[in-house]
Structure formats: C-alpha cells, structure tokens
Simulated assay, not measured.
Amino acid sequence: MQEQFVNEFMAKVTDLISDADLNIVYRQLMIHVSEYEVRKKSTEVVIYEGYLPECYEVFFVTRKIEGMSMKSLELYNMVLKHFFYCLNKKIEKITTNDIRVYLYKVQQERQLSNATLDSRRTIIHSFLEWAANEQYIGSNPCRSIRPIKYERPKRNPLTAIELEMLRNTCQTIRDAAIIEFLYSTGCRVTEMERADITDVDFAKKEVLLFGKGNKHRISYINARAELALKKYLEIREDDSPALFVSERKPHGRIKKAAIEKRVRQLGEMSQIGRRVYPHLIRHTTATDGLFRGMPVEEVQKLLGHVNITTTMIYAEVSEENTKNDHKKYIV
C-alpha cells in the first residue's frame, strides 16, 4: 500500500516538476512513508449499531417497574437514543464537555427553546445519575451542568366570570358534568378518562383517581359536581363501567382527545376570548383554593403533586391575595 500511495502521488506531480526533481521526490517520499502505516480511506457507509450502552434496557425496565408513564418512557427513549447516537461513545467515556457540546449543537440544529433543551438535559442527567448509582459508571458527568434558565410562561387561571361563562355554555348534561368534575376534583384529563362510576363515593363526596405514575389518590366532589354527575348518570342508558362515555353508540369510554376537544369547543362558544383546555381548569381549581385560604400542602395533595414546588408553579398566589393578607397581618 505504501508503494501504491507513492506511485499514485508521483503520477499526479509528473507534469509539474522536472525529471531530476521527480527522482529526488520519489526517493525521499519512499523513505518517509516507510515509517508510516498507509491504508486507503474506506468510503463505504457503515451502520453503527453499538451506540446504546448495555444498561440501556435495564434502565427502562427499572423505570417502568417504578411507575413511569408510557408517555414519559417514550420521551426518554427518543431523547436518549438521539444523545447516544450523536456522541457515538461508550458510556464510561462520556465527559461533561461532550454533553455541553451535544446540548449546544442540538439547540442550534433544531432551534429548541431553553425550556425544551433543559428537559433534554434533565433526561440525560436522570439516566446518567441512575447509571452512576447502579455502578455502571464511576460518576455522572452531567451532574456539574446546571439547569438551563428560561422564563416560565405565567398561567392565568379562569376568572370567576369566565368560569360562569363556561358553565352557562354547556349544552348537555354531560357537558356540565365534565366541567364540574374537572373543576371540583382538579384532576388531570387522563385521570378523568380512566375514572369509573364505582370510583365515585357520593356518600363520602370522594372520588378515587388513577393517574400519573400509575398512582391512586383521593379527590373530592362539591355540591355542583355531585348534582351534575347524578343527573348525568340518571340519563345514561348504557352498561359501561366508565364514568364518562361517548354520546354515540356503543357509548365507549370517552378518550383524552375527545375530552380536550369538547372543553375547547365549549371555551370557544363561551366567547371568553382565549383557549380553554382541561389543564387550565385544573390550574383554576388550585389557584382558587389558595386564594380562598386553602393551605398549599392541601392543594398539593389535591393535585397529586410529589413536590410542593410543582404546586406553586401551577397555582401562583395572586398579588391581590398577598396584599390583602399584608393588610390583615402586618399592622
């Protein structure tokens, strides 16, 4: 291969230098390349299949057993596969700088917001922290990368007038039951989708919800929600165990997308002037509870948050409430 390299090179410069110089270059080049291993660069497309660490599947099995939702598992899988594919390095050789460069490049290439980028950083950190704790790697190289700062959009809950406008727009008994159930329980839309009739205890004014993290929790129904649910269940002619069903036969369990669509339609018909969605009603429940004096720990329990800081993100205490309390207590 060395001789072939020299001969091909000499063929390219034959017309550029004299015969005497050509002989000198030839001899010197042969001496020089003798100290090197020369091989032709491969132009074949090689599919790299070893970018995922051996512990990759173990991580997902562990998280699934711990109750991580399928939606979260899919997101983790998408982010981590892209991360390891781009780095193309063994997990134990990944450095902090590798991660920083990856985050910088992926933001530039995909025009990601800081919020989305920090979500990727969190996922990468979570995996590497688990790998370090399980002793697959010595330490987590992502540990020294600080959270990426971004401004959280302020969530404005429905005002009392807007909530009444939404209620007055309900065209069916089921519409009213959906709105009152969402507001009273502060449930997630997936929790509403999964709720069965037997989960509601009218005597105790309680409802058993099953949602995020595959966990059960108790929430409560107020008088409005109780009345709306009883009216709705009285007109039902199906035998479905689901608390809420589709209006068309065979009246199957109502799906998340259908709930979101109907709430959005009711919001548009109410002419509130902004988009209405189930999570906005959940946020309104939390904010109203705090505004009327409900302790934040109880709001946390009502919403099913593990971390109280999450509760404060969804339910910011209004400045007006703080001002009123200041007048009451700071005298």
Rank of each mutant, 00 (worst) to 15 (best):
P153Y: 01
T285M: 05
E37I: 10
T62P: 03
K154Q: 05
F127A: 08
E66L: 10
R274Y: 03
V45D: 11
L209D: 14
E247W: 08
I17Q: 14
I197P: 12
M312D: 03
D118Q: 06
P147M: 11
Q111H: 00
I173T: 08
M1K: 06
P241K: 10
V45I: 14
E49I: 13
D196T: 14
D196L: 14
D239N: 12
N168S: 07
P278C: 06
S318N: 02
I313T: 03
A176M: 13
R174G: 06
K205A: 02
R152Y: 15
G211A: 05
S184Q: 03
H82K: 04
E297S: 09
D238I: 11
R217P: 06
M30H: 13
Y136S: 13
T285N: 06
I178C: 08
V13P: 08
I47L: 08
C55W: 06
E319M: 05
Q4P: 01
E297H: 06
T172Y: 01
F210Y: 12
E92Q: 11
A177L: 14
Y220Q: 05
I259A: 05
H82Q: 01
K93D: 12
T185P: 01
N23V: 11
Y104T: 13
E109S: 02
N97C: 01
H32M: 11
R253S: 09
Y277F: 11
A257R: 12
A177D: 09
K323E: 04
I272A: 04
R217Y: 01
R224E: 05
R120W: 06
G273D: 04
K215M: 11
I197K: 14
R275C: 07
L112F: 12
E35K: 14
C86H: 11
L280C: 04
P278N: 06
E298Q: 01
I47Y: 00
E297C: 01
Y76W: 10
E8W: 09
K149G: 13
P141L: 07
K40D: 01
R264E: 08
A203K: 15
V61P: 03
H125Q: 11
L227N: 15
Y329Q: 03
I145L: 08
C86E: 10
T285C: 02
S184E: 02
R121D: 07
T122D: 01
N114Y: 05
